[in-house]
Design a protein around this nucleic acid. Structure first.
Length: 572
RNA sequence: CGGGGCGUAGCGCAGCCCGGUAGCGCGCCUGCUUUGGGAGCAGGAUGUCAGAGGUUCAAAUCCUCUCGCCCCGACCA
């Protein structure tokens, strides 16, 4: 393609609306333009990247035995009411009525639609396993769209759904997708980790997320520095402490702590460390209020708490609720004499002795409070976030925390949807059984954004070869006929050789072209100009390394082939 | 939804406090020169100052409301 024939509106300045690297560079290099919050147009260059990623996904999904289909974006409320997600999904589900006042929604995911198809069309275990996938536009009315394609409301997703007769089969299907995802993200040139994940709104039992490691990531990953353990922080297990403090018990003593509410204020006043203090946090979980005891230097993991209480989410109680439950203003809650709410505690509390806790009385704490003697706990559980330096819950090593961008997630759903929608098949005994399902998603645009987060410099994008919009950016830096003629030949030869080449044939000066080429980030730049041609050469610049080499025009195609193979071994 | 901020030319911004002719840089158009890392000169076009009300002789500027967008939090591919 020629630049003069494509709309590639590059920007010299950073757009004011964009802060993250990928968002900024996508706008600047003319890949996308915003239409509304979280809603974008993919311009020709951006669409080429999207298509490249889609193609890699297609190849690997097909290789893994999945079959492609395409479901509608709009789906009727009835299906969603069957699984109760019409109510449960909340405001993220964009609903509307058709002209007959029938309720519809824009699909945020397609478990209902695919399960409906399955139950209508599939009867026998002989037809299984089945795995259907689609690459389609999804709509989720996100609370806060941000960072360009990283979290859009409308976005392109590959979603796949597997159906098996039994658990064993479902695990095989799950593993196939897991392996396919590893290949997909590897082929996209990303540095990533597969981590254990919470199942969230989709539901189910087992799940892994594929995290591209990048500082701009919204998720936190905890992984072992020596072993293979890796998990989303939401999920990362913290084993109970092995050593118990054996200090002799001292008598419980009230102590005045006027206006000292926070851990910092109380520990500063009493000259102790946060490790010697127990925070008592009150949470609302549905209709119930619970108290959660947690060591002063730890953070409550609300996902774990919600899971323990079997609710969808928990929120910190407001001050009125705290006052009602403890008889004291917030900041002075403690488990001693706390009657009105259940008391839950993180495992770490078991190991603590002579702790400081709130006294359920304004401006007062207790010193030397001790479990069982002074207060009791209804249930101990893993309720805190893992911290860097914690021992790995499985395998050797200690945990390190890093930021990650979630580009894909795989779930073993079990019968969650097949049960609610009665999706059954006959097994080899002629008995009706619920299909065991799995579902598997990849954010296509987010994968492109993540690739930019990991591959850029101050000049612009450095595309991994397999997902670059073009392999070669051909730059003519002189306006002479000689140069144009030489470039025309090279352009024709490259195209004939199957090289994806973008020829910057604009009448602009060399500097403009060099800068745009660096910004757009094709892996290789070929520079043709009067100077080089006088010496009988053209120049190749490798975008990533910046290394330039001079080469006879006749050798260009062969040389680029060689460089391409080095850049993308999987393409060979 | 809670907290913070912003809406002025295609992009980046100034002007607003202290009301009176809407500006700067880049980009765009024309011409000449230039042509290997964001050219120079000359000329030119482009704005419902987010919208609606109000105050005033007069509003981009002051007041009220509405809308949109960005950032921080709760959500997720």
């Amino acid at each position: 393609m020629k630049t003069s024939q494509l709309l590639i509106p590059t920007l010299r300045d950073d757009p004011g609306e964009a802060e993250t690297v990928s968002h900024r560079l996508m706008l600047r290099s003319g890949l996308i333009r915003k239409v509304a919050a979280g809603i974008y147009t993919y311009l020709p260059l951006g669409l080429r990247v999207i298509r490249k990623i889609e193609q890699i996904i297609r190849e690997e999904m097909n290789r893994a035995g999945a079959q492609e289909l395409l479901m509608p974006i709009a789906s009727p409320a009835e299906l969603w009411k069957e699984t109760a997600r019409w109510d449960y999904y909340g405001k993220e589900l964009l609903r509307f009525k058709d002209r007959h006042e029938r309720d519809f929604c824009l699909g945020p995911t397609h478990e209902e639609v695919i399960t409906d198809l399955f139950r209508r069309e599939v009867r026998s275990y002989r037809q299984l396993p089945l795995n259907f996938y689609q690459i389609q536009t999804k709509f989720r009315d996100e609370i806060r769209p941000r960072f360009g394609l990283m979290r859009g409301r409308e976005f392109i997703m590959k979603d796949a759904y597997s159906f098996d007769v039994d658990e064993a089969g479902a695990k095989v299907s799950y593993q196939k997708m897991y392996d396919a995802y590893i290949r997909i993200f590897t082929r996209c040139g990303l540095t990533f980790r597969a981590v254990e994940a919470d199942t969230g709104l989709i539901g189910g039992d087992v799940s892994h997320e594929f995290m591209v490691l990048a500082d701009t990531g919204e998720a936190t990953v905890a992984y072992s520095d020596q072993g293979s353990y890796a998990a989303n922080l939401e999920r990362a297990e913290v084993p109970p402490p092995s050593d118990v403090d054996t200090t002799p018990l001292r008598p419980l003593t009230p102590i005045a702590t006027p206006q000292r509410r926070t851990v910092e204020e109380v520990t500063a006043l009493l000259q102790i460390t946060p490790r010697q203090l127990v925070k008592t946090l009150l949470y609302r979980a549905g209709a119930e209020t619970v108290a959660v005891l947690i060591r002063g230097d730890h953070e409550v993991n609300e996902v774990k708490l919600a899971r323990l209480l079997n609710v969808t989410d928990v929120v910190l109680a407001d001050s009125e609720t705290v006052q009602h439950a403890t008889g004291a203003p917030p900041g002075f809650a403690g488990p001693v004499g706390l009657q009105r709410v259940r008391i839950l505690a993180d495992h770490a509390i078991k190991a603590m002795k002579n702790v400081v806790i709130g006294a359920n009385k304004a401006d007062t704490h207790y010193q030397n409070a001790n479990l069982d003697r002074d207060f009791t706990v209804e249930q101990f559980s893993d309720l805190r976030n893992a911290q860097a330096g914690d021992p790995s819950p499985r395998g050797p090593g200690v945990l390190t925390l890093a930021k990650g961008i979630e580009v894909g997630q795989v779930f073993l759903l079990g019968t969650k949807y097949s049960h609610k929608m009665n999706a059954t098949i006959l097994d080899d005994q002629g008995k009706e059984r619920l299909a065991i399902m799995g579902c598997y998603g990849i954010g296509v645009g987010r994968t492109a954004a993540a690739a930019i987060e990991q591959n850029h410099d101050e000049k612009g994008i450095i595309w991994p070869f397999p997902i670059a919009p073009f392999h070669v950016h051909l730059l003519t830096v002189s306006q002479s006929e000689k140069t144009t003629e030489a470039a025309t030949h090279l352009y024709t030869d490259l195209m004939a050789a199957g090289v994806e080449v973008l020829w910057d044939d604009r009448a602009d000066r060399a500097g403009v072209k060099f800068n745009d080429a660096d910004l757009i980030g094709a892996p290789f730049q070929v520079v043709v100009g009067d100077k080089g041609l006088a010496d009988g050469i053209v120049e190749i610049k490798i975008r990533r390394s910046g290394i330039k080499s001079r080469i006879a025009p006749g050798d260009l195609v062969a040389q680029l082939r060689k460089l391409s193979t080095e850049a993308d071994p999987s393409a060979a």
